[in-house]
Write a protein that binds this DNA or RNA. Structure first.
Length: 918
RNA sequence: GCGCGGUUAGCUUAGUGGUAGAGCGUCCGCUUCACACGCGGAAGGUCACAGGUUCGAACCCUGUACCGCGCACCA
């Protein structure tokens, strides 16, 4: 008979014996899509306000941090959304009515930029070529095509969102709410137009908020130059600057009023080199006499501090930059039209030509970069819409009083600091894609020049005295002759309503405030703090009977869990530009969604950044396979009893031990969940399944499974089923697919595991089994002996035990199994010339049919003696320390004494052994 | 400058007062009838440094160094 033929026969016979046959390895690809579509079909993720179980067991809700429609799934998303899925799946198992509300963010600037890039590349046109209306139509088209990608990816990950509730920040209803909020805040006098220095992004040609400016350390230069004093020809003032390219905009130079070096020059003038002009020497407190030369060139149009100096001293403002940061100064044709950084070099050259340049020195400073376009921002004077934040006091209060709890709590300090120093929020963006500002302007009667039809111009002019421009803040157009503000709102001005504006009234009644928000600390100001403020200001749940109750009803969430950042192996942030971020979908196809989820969770401790290592994901997969095979092994022993109750049977000490460990692990997991310690819970489960269950219990069970007549067989099977049933449920939030597949396949339930009860065993409910622990300890010693003498692990050998108490036959059989022993003999006297290990059950000998090397054994025993002596010394030092005995707790002292006695006995036996060898 | 984290085996890390634990990697041995995505064993750590508190410190306190982050400054 050929090999193939034999194989065929074996497979066939196995198949008929065992209807549950599982594949030899867990194959996620065979399972995931199939199960996920079933879950969707059955509506398992749907949340129903007012349901019976919700009324009975409570409600649980999470709103997803809406990913950008431009985005694709990153490791950050995987981390974040796995955590949310774990929380929401656990809540369902606890019998709660759980809502995980999904959605996406229109991401104004990011999306507009992406579509513009697409148009430039494929059609060689800009948005201005298309015009606002047509451009927006194209963005919507683009969003329909690309906006759903990340949603599909989240499904691949197994996320149990209520997809029928998918929201988008530009949905009609949502958009209306955003505009209503604007009108409301305008009417309250909190939103105002203002002419201020803003952070201008020359890359995206829009103002941005302070929170979107990223300071970056730069290797710059400090340029020293000199301006001639007008009234004292031949005398020069030295000035240090990092930005010589803006000197055309200088309208003064300033010194500290108390600076003796320059006091006499106050009121005089210097020559600005180009375009050549006289500018005054003024005094201002802002100047630090110790910095540079103590002389500052004042450029009010291009620096926030300079602007303020200008205001204090009535200086003119000369803007020498275009919106895209090119020099705008026709009087200096050499520089006009030049990029700002080119112009920096050129202006230095021009100073040199005029003999006004002294030197340059290397200088480290911070430069603000635009978060989105990653180019240095320009301080720029413009008329923008600003919001004065409401409810900042209350926002501090709800966190201080723990109505909202932060995990880890140290983020409270960061949050407090921001709120205590809060500045008005620039909410207008020179962007088309987004929520258009609901403000209308009417040009003054009689003005016919074309610029009067331009809303930006109208807005600017409305800030100028002497020009009368009517302005109305409302959603609908006031009628003919009115033009709407051109700008859109900061994307965060729409996402700050996300926690409740995504819910209808019935949903809100049951699910708001949401239970928890899972997000990254990088958006604590941009999103978290603002959502808290929005909840308190707009009160989606209305007033309570007391002010405190009003706060409590309207907070956006009760807990905030801040994840860590995922870094690569070198500790760098994962980013598209570095290309150091793996594609989660690749990882899913390699290791399965469960492997990815579990592997990541195990290395994601609370509040710490995560060093990503694909090995960890591989381990996640290996863990799934381990569990799979343990279950497969169980199916080979016959049918599973889903209602198995071990306590109805006679149990081996090993069964008692695993039940105790299960209870302990279960409790540890629940404690960890209370504290949002996801990796602790995952590790506890991993350790239990791999080490306690597979490496130990499963091996001991083989004794019963091999013996149909064993009196403990039924108990061992029941224990097996009981443990698996608990493990599957405890693991389900982390690994939804494999647990569901095994749950159904093994027959633990006909229905999904998703609503099976969450286990809450308590550690105290079962006594420790010393007997099993001692047996395992003996096995460890025996295996170590084997290793010491290089006996291959597959070689069956005989062990001899000189017992403290004679163990039962069943236990000896198990010991033999775990030691891979031919047999374990009970002896009454110590054999000679034979390696020994001292175990809690007695002395374990490994007689080696004449192959032992007495010298080797002697060496080994001496090594062990040395270790024992060292331990003895340490213990004696403690026991001889009178202070220690007097002040340490009595229980500790007893422990040390017991250890001491044990070590003494061990030393004695070692000495005897050594004598026997000699 | 202020604040927040961190520094434990080659790597990733657990460990909030009682003789340092794990996984990966390394080395040795195993196709032992659930699993080579595996099994058994071993080597590997003055817990960043310096003081202090304590009977006892990886752990508490103070300071220093280095790494990361945030805020402020940034001519």
């Amino acid at each position: 008979m050929s090999i193939e033929c034999q194989y065929f026969v074996l497979r066939t016979s196995n198949f008929f014996q065992d209807m549950h046959e599982l594949a030899k390895a867990y194959e996620p690809q065979q399972v995931e899509d199939r199960l996920y579509s079933t879950w969707l079909e059955k509506g398992n993720f749907k949340a129903t306000p007012g349901s019976a179980k919700g009324e009975k067991n409570g409600y649980y809700s999470i709103v997803i941090p809406p990913p950008n429609i431009t985005g694709v799934l990153t490791m950050g998303h995987v981390l974040n959304n796995t955590l949310q899925d774990i929380l929401v799946r656990k809540a369902r198992m606890e019998g709660k009515e759980a809502l995980w509300l999904p959605g996406t963010d229109h991401a104004g600037l990011a999306t507009q930029t992406a579509v513009e890039k697409y148009l430039r590349k494929n059609e060689k046109i800009t948005r201005h070529d298309l015009g606002r209306e047509e451009f927006l139509r194209r963005v919507w088209e683009w969003q329909k095509k690309h906006g759903g990608i990340i949603i599909t990816q989240l499904k691949k990950l197994g996320c149990s969102c209520d997809w029928e509730r998918l929201r988008f920040t530009l949905d009609d209803r949502y958009a209306k709410a955003v505009q209503e909020v604007f009108v409301d805040l305008y009417n309250k006098g909190l939103i105002k137009l203002d002419l201020r220095m803003v952070n201008w992004c020359p890359g995206s040609l829009t103002a941005i908020s302070d929170e979107e400016v990223i300071p970056k350390a730069q290797k710059s230069f400090l340029y020293y130059m000199r301006y001639e004093v007008v009234e004292e020809p031949g005398r020069f003032l030295e000035i240090a600057t990092t930005r010589p390219e803006t000197l055309m905009g200088d309208t003064a130079i300033a010194v500290h009023p108390e600076d003796e070096r320059y006091k006499a020059l106050l009121g005089k003038h210097v020559w600005r080199p180009f375009p050549k002009a006289q500018i005054p020497i003024i005094a201002d407190e802002h100047i630090d006499p110790k910095f540079g030369t103590g002389v500052l060139k004042v450029t009010p149009a291009h620096d926030k501090a300079d602007f303020e100096i200008g205001q204090r001293n009535n200086l003119p403002i000369i803007d020498v930059l275009t919106p895209n940061a090119k020099i705008n100064c026709p009087e200096v044709p050499e520089l006009h039209g030049m990029d700002r950084f080119e112009a920096r070099k050129k202006s230095v050259e021009m100073l040199k030509e005029r003999d006004l340049f002294i030197r340059e020195e290397a200088y480290d400073n911070n430069v603000g970069f635009s978060e989105r376009a990653d180019v240095p921002i320009e301080p720029r004077l413009s008329v923008q819409w600003f919001l004065k934040y409401p409810k900042t006091e209350e926002a501090l209060q709800v966190v201080r009083e723990q109505l909202i709890k932060f995990y880890p709590s140290h983020w409270e300090k960061v949050y407090n600091h921001w709120l205590e120093n809060i500045q008005p929020w620039c909410i207008s963006r020179q962007v088309w894609w987004g929520h258009r500002i609901p403000v209308w302007y009417k040009k003054p009667a009689g003005e016919t020049a074309p610029e009067w039809n331009n809303p930006s111009y109208l807005r600017e002019m409305s800030r100028q005295s002497g020009v009368k421009i009517e302005l109305k803040c409302q959603i609908q157009s006031p009628g003919e002759g009115w033009v709407q503000d051109d700008d859109s709102l900061d994307t965060w001005f729409s996402s700050w309503l996300w926690a409740y504006e995504t819910m209808d009234k019935a949903t809100r009644a049951k699910f708001y405030p949401t239970s928890v928000l899972v997000t990254g600390p990088d958006i604590i100001f941009l999103w978290v703090a603002r959502m808290i403020i929005a909840g308190l200001e707009f009160q989606p749940q209305g007033q309570g009977s007391t002010p405190d109750e009003t706060l409590k009803k309207n907070i956006a969430f009760k807990d905030v869990y801040f994840t860590g950042l995922i870094r690569d192996g070198k500790g760098r942030k994962m980013s598209k530009s570095l290309g150091n971020s793996p594609d989660p979908l690749d990882l899913i196809s390699k290791y399965g969604a469960d492997g990815l989820r579990f592997g990541l969770m195990r290395i994601a401790p609370q509040g710490q950044d995560i060093r990503f290592d694909e090995k960890q994901i591989e381990e996640g997969r290996n863990f799934c396979n381990k569990l799979w095979n343990a279950c497969r092994f169980r199916t080979m022993q016959g049918d599973i009893d889903p209602k198995a109750d071990p306590d109805k049977h006679t149990l081996t000490p090993f069964a008692q031990h695993i039940l105790q460990r299960l209870s302990e692990t279960n409790e540890a997991i629940n404690v960890a969940f209370e504290k949002f310690e996801f990796s602790t819970a995952a590790s506890a489960l991993y350790d239990f399944v791999w080490n306690d269950f597979c490496a130990r219990y499963l091996e001991t069970a083989k004794a019963d499974f091999n013996n149909a007549a064993s009196p403990t067989r039924a108990g061992t099977l029941a224990t097996f089923d009981y443990v698996i049933s608990h493990v599957l449920r405890l693991l389900h939030p982390y690994a939804p697919f494999i647990t569901e597949e095994l749950w159904l396949n093994l027959g633990f339930g006909k229905e999904t595991i998703q609503f099976a009860s969450w286990p809450r065993l308590s550690a105290k409910s079962r006594p420790h089994s010393e007997e099993a622990a001692n047996a395992y300890s003996l096995v460890d010693h025996g295996r170590a002996l084997r290793g010491e003498f290089s006996i291959p692990s597959n070689q069956k050998i005989t062990f001899q035990l000189l017992p403290k108490e004679t163990p039962g036959n069943a236990e000896i059989e198990v010991l033999g199994l775990l030691l891979n022993a031919e047999k374990v003999e009970i002896v009454e006297a110590a054999p000679k010339n034979c390696p020994v290990a001292f175990t809690p059950l007695g002395e374990l000998y490994m007689p080696l049919a004449g192959v032992i090397d007495p010298a080797a054994e002697k060496g080994r025993l001496e090594k062990e003696t040395a270790k024992t002596l060292k331990d003895l010394e340490l213990t004696e030092k403690k026991l001889n320390n009178k202070d220690m005995i007097a002040k340490a707790p009595a229980a500790k002292v007893e422990e040390w004494k017991a250890l001491h006695a044990e070590l003494l006995a061990k030393r004695k036996r070692l000495e005897e052994q050594l004598k026997m060898l000699a």
